[in-house]
Simulated scan of single mutants.
Amino acid sequence: MTGRVAAVSSNEVYSFSKPNRDSITLLTGLGVEGDVHAGETIRHQFRMTYEPDLPNLRQVHLMHEELFDELSRKGFQVSAGQLGENITTRAVDLLGLPTGTLLHLGEQAVLEVTGLRNPCSKINDFRKGLLAEVFAMDPESGEFTFKSGVMAVVRRGGVVRPNDSIRVEPPAPPHRPLERV
């Protein structure tokens, strides 16, 4: 499966949204150069207070641009970077990938998908009612649906730009479905 990078975003300070950039540099084992969430250990503002020494499985946040299309049909105008993602993708079924999938971005960079992003309640501060559109419970099965993208770690660094290709390399079977990280 091949997709493409629709946009790249980063922010050096804690903020809900991240400004779009012409490029970002991924650093092996750390994340996006200059991004507040880069580091070997947890950088998520809330989780750092009670799990500061855990490995950072959330170095890079990826979100599928198709979600913005879906949200637009429901009356929510959202664009790349506004939900805090570093890489916005097109034509990659991020939510359907198994844990451990490698994403080859552009000429050099490789990410390993670690799990689903658990949407933050701050999303309703950004757009009232948006949380219910990206996080829902199925009343029949009782299972949660997370639509707000996936998290990854950087296995090989490199520069990533909009329109770079994304090649998906699934891990060897048996596949494990994505869980929250």
Rank of each mutant, 00 (worst) to 15 (best):
A6M: 11
S9W: 02
S121L: 04
L103M: 09
S17Y: 05
R47M: 12
S165I: 10
R47L: 09
L71V: 05
N56S: 04
N86Q: 12
K128T: 14
N118C: 04
K74V: 06
I42E: 00
E70Y: 10
G96I: 06
R161D: 01
Q77S: 14
L97C: 09
G157P: 06
V154C: 05
S148H: 11
E66Y: 02
T2K: 15
L30H: 07
R161N: 04
F144V: 07
L71N: 01
R4Q: 11
S23W: 15
V160I: 07
E133C: 09
F16I: 03
F68L: 06
L94F: 07
V153N: 06
P55G: 05
M63T: 11
P55K: 05
R58L: 01
P162L: 07
S141G: 08
S165R: 12
P55C: 06
N118P: 00
G81N: 06
Q77G: 10
Q59H: 08
P162Q: 04
V181W: 10
R21H: 14
G75I: 13
M151W: 11
L97S: 08
L26R: 03
H61A: 02
K147D: 01
L103F: 09
H104S: 12
L57T: 09
L102I: 11
Q59A: 03
R156D: 05
E65N: 10
V32K: 00
G115V: 03
R117T: 06
V13L: 06
F68R: 04
R90L: 14
V134F: 04
V134W: 05
K122Q: 08
T2I: 13
I24E: 02
G31V: 01
M137H: 11
E112L: 12
G39W: 03
M63V: 05
T28H: 03
V160D: 00
T101C: 11
L130Q: 06
H104Q: 15
K128N: 14
R90D: 08
Q108A: 15
V159M: 12
F146Y: 15
N163M: 10
R73Y: 09
G115S: 07
R155M: 13
L54H: 06
Y50P: 00
G75E: 10
R47V: 11
G129Q: 13
I87S: 00
R156T: 14
G96P: 01
V92T: 12
E143W: 11
P173Y: 09
R47P: 00
F68I: 07
A7S: 15
Q45L: 08
L27D: 07
S15H: 15
G115H: 02
T145D: 12
M1F: 08
K128I: 11
F76S: 14
H64Q: 14
R117N: 13
G84M: 10
N163Q: 09
F144K: 10
S23R: 14
S79D: 14
L131R: 13
L71M: 05
F16Q: 01
V60S: 00
G81K: 08
A6T: 07
P19L: 07
P55A: 05
F135L: 13
K18L: 01
L103A: 09
S17K: 13
S141N: 11
T25G: 02
V181Y: 12
V92I: 15
G100Q: 12
Y50T: 01
P170K: 12
E107H: 13
S148W: 05
V159K: 11
R73S: 15
G158Q: 09
S165T: 15
L27N: 01
A132G: 13
Y14V: 10
R4M: 04
